[in-house]
Amino acid sequence: MTGSGAIVAFGAVPLAALICAALIVAIMPLLARYALARPNARSSHKIPTPQGAGIAVIAATLGVAAGAITLVASVPAIPLLLFGATILIAAVGTVDDIRPIPVLPRLLLQAIAVGAVLAALPADLQILPMAPLWIERAGLLVAALWFVNLVNFMDGLDWMTVSELVPITLALVALGVVGALPTDATLIAAALGGAILGFAPFNRPVARVFLGDVGSLPVGLLLGWCLLQLAGNGHLAAAVLLPLYYLADSTLTLVRRIAKREAFWEAHRTHFYQRATDNGFPVLGVVGRVFGLNLLLAALAGVSVAFGSAAIDAAMLLAGGAAVAFVLARFGRPRHQSPAQA
């Protein structure tokens, strides 16, 4: 990325934060009136709380990203299909926040949006050249659909999305500045990270407002697309390391629920971060550990990109996996144990 591009990328962060915060203040009365999230089996909150701040997050992200891409590119190439798919998934999330949509129609609409984005990828963008392209794209469809939903599943605690998205997006910006990520993905990551920072004061425990599905689902699409661009640029290990905590917590929880023959599609409180609060960890203790873990994963991803060898990639993945396993194991045990229990 050029020097001017780096300046625009770093400038996009505070601009998106300010726009997002202003939009949240403006729409808060409407959210309080029409989009209250009432406590359910999945909730960590005890009283009805407005949701839907994702409207501001997505609006600020897309607006700032489009402007930044226009400024930087000699021939602006705004990924309009990605932006359109993001708006579609946000619209589905908006309806679901107000009046829940059945699982199958919701997944179908999400699959249409994700599939359209993947269909528009260049034919020469392949992460695993040894695999037939159609097999890789089919696998990407399933993986992307899962990633969109797991970001939503993990958005169940105040500041949880902030503790995940801020380190990842700022790491993506840093990687883009050194040329490891395409310019458009770098600018989208910068705008998304800034918008999440603008949302953070309102979601600080105890939260005054939640993202809602209107925010968490399209955030998952945008973040997944940026990570796909990183992997397609030859940095698969880094693209796995950055969201590794989210991937591990949500996937292991899903596998465990399926193994127990539970209705895994229904709301629940069995993710590791949710079990941590049930085990006596304060909310800030949980999100603080996740934030610190994500800083470590970002550093490991940076080392992977800097050295770019199979051996280094394997070592960083092992180190990241060990760190994630340690945090998950700690979340799964009571915070205070007697010597006999430890």
Rank of each mutant, 00 (worst) to 15 (best):
V162S: 04
L247Q: 08
L187C: 05
R204Y: 09
G5I: 05
I55N: 03
G156I: 02
H268D: 05
T49D: 01
V206Y: 08
A191T: 05
G280S: 06
A185R: 07
G3Y: 13
V303D: 06
R106D: 13
F153C: 06
I127D: 04
L80E: 11
L221C: 11
L140D: 09
A342I: 13
R137I: 03
V162T: 13
L109N: 04
N279G: 12
V95P: 04
A263L: 12
L197A: 10
V13D: 04
H268P: 07
R275T: 14
V286E: 02
M316T: 08
A267V: 13
F331P: 01
I258L: 15
Y246K: 12
T94C: 10
A298P: 03
I101H: 04
V64A: 02
L217M: 15
D249W: 11
L23F: 12
Q337K: 15
S163I: 06
L71T: 11
S4I: 14
L104S: 10
A191F: 02
I19A: 09
V25H: 08
A111F: 14
L133I: 14
H271K: 07
V286P: 03
V114N: 03
L133M: 12
D97S: 08
I312T: 15
F153I: 08
A120H: 12
P218T: 13
D249G: 05
W146N: 00
R269Y: 10
F307G: 10
A91Q: 09
S43G: 08
A9W: 01
T2V: 10
A314T: 15
L247D: 01
L165N: 05
P14I: 07
L318A: 15
A301N: 05
M28S: 07
L104Q: 09
L62P: 00
I78Y: 00
A21S: 15
L254T: 06
V327G: 01
L328T: 06
P50G: 04
L125H: 07
A325K: 14
I168D: 00
L192T: 03
V324S: 07
G193I: 00
H235T: 07
L175S: 12
N233D: 07
S250V: 11
V64Q: 08
A180I: 04
V305M: 03
G67R: 05
W134T: 15
V72F: 04
N152I: 06
L150E: 04
A22C: 14
Y273P: 02
I58W: 02
A174C: 03
